[in-house]
């Protein structure tokens, strides 16, 4: 492989170049320009027809392709030399999930983690021993499945995990499960955690006054929310948690940490953030 003038770079940067070229060479061939062509949107009825047809097709074809579909907490489908794993019951205990995978011949351990709603039932992490001499290098490919192409969010998630049937290295996978009341999410999708002071958010919907922190605290408590309060203090680089609603402050931001756990950030009323929050509140339509 040509590495024109890698020597000129010198040091570790020169050594890295041929490795990158080799990595590029090993990439599966794709035609990104073609993939990016936007197809015209079909009419809705046509779309519905296609979706319905596809659903029927999938229903017919998948069982035909699967040699021995196993339906437990994890659906296991053998498709040629690849095992497709998808979560059927995200609330099941991890031991039964582990058993499902072991029954499929995989040296696997399943763990579960509370996650925000859109990640429930997804595979949200994968661990294998890494590039040890005896480890299967395809572990990296499996782990890469957690990062959907074209998604720059960096939030790992996969609906279906595809494992080579001869993958013999021990591994651990993490399934996103629903969080319990009062629990915080270990991983949250950005789309699940908007600013709750903005239009449509809890604080905004209830028409609560950002400067009445105690009133907000009472209202949220009555609705069953666990409240975590913080103050954006000028003397520390980030917010400082406080035990209860701080008096004389203004709510500048609120974000769900779990299904009913709300982090509420406040700031001094003279700060730009507080003034912006009050100004936004004045402009917001009350209620939802």
């Amino acid at each position: 492989m040509k590495t024109t003038g890698a020597e000129e770079l010198g040091g570790y940067r020169g050594a890295l170049l041929p490795i990158l070229l080799e990595t590029q060479h090993r990439q599966p061939g794709v035609a990104p320009h073609q993939e990016r062509i936007q197809l015209p949107r079909p009419r809705m009825w046509l779309k519905a027809l296609v979706v319905a047809g596809a659903a029927v097709g999938i229903a017919v074809v998948i069982p035909a392709l699967s040699n021995d579909p196993l339906e437990g907490a994890i659906a296991v489908e053998h498709r040629g030399k690849v095992i497709h794993l998808s979560v059927q019951d995200a609330s099941a205990d991890p031991e039964s999930m582990t058993n499902d995978l072991r029954a499929a011949g995989l040296d696997a351990q399943v763990e579960v983690a509370p996650v925000s709603p859109s990640l429930v039932g997804m595979w949200v992490d994968f661990f294998s021993p890494g590039p040890k001499p005896d480890a299967d290098p395809r572990g990296l490919d499996i782990w890469n499945q957690m990062y959907p192409p074209g998604d720059p969010s960096g939030i790992p998630r996969a609906r279906v995990l595809k494992i080579p049937s001869d993958f013999s290295t021990a591994f651990t996978v993490v399934v996103g499960r629903p969080a319990h009341e009062g629990e915080t999410w270990q991983q949250a999708n950005f789309s699940d955690v908007p600013d709750e002071t903005s239009d449509g958010g809890i604080i905004s919907c209830l028409g609560l006054e950002p400067s009445d922190t105690e009133g907000v605290d009472r209202a949220l408590e009555n609705l069953g929310y666990v409240r975590e309060w913080s103050v954006e203090d000028p003397d520390v680089p980030s917010s400082e948690r406080v035990a209860g609603p701080p008096g004389g402050k203004v709510i500048v931001y609120a974000e769900l940490l779990g299904p009913n756990v709300l982090l509420i950030s406040t700031a001094d009323s003279e700060t730009p953030a507080a003034r912006a929050a009050l100004s936004t509140h004045a402009r917001q339509a009350k209620g939802c």
Binding site: Y12, L16, I19, T23, Q27, E35, R36, N144, P149, G150
Partner: peptide, 22 residues
Amino acid sequence: VPDLVAAVWLEVVESTNRFDPT
């Protein structure tokens, strides 16, 4: 630094098909 530089470039090489110049 070398580990991180290499990690970034490996990520870049395997992600070039996600780059959309438009």
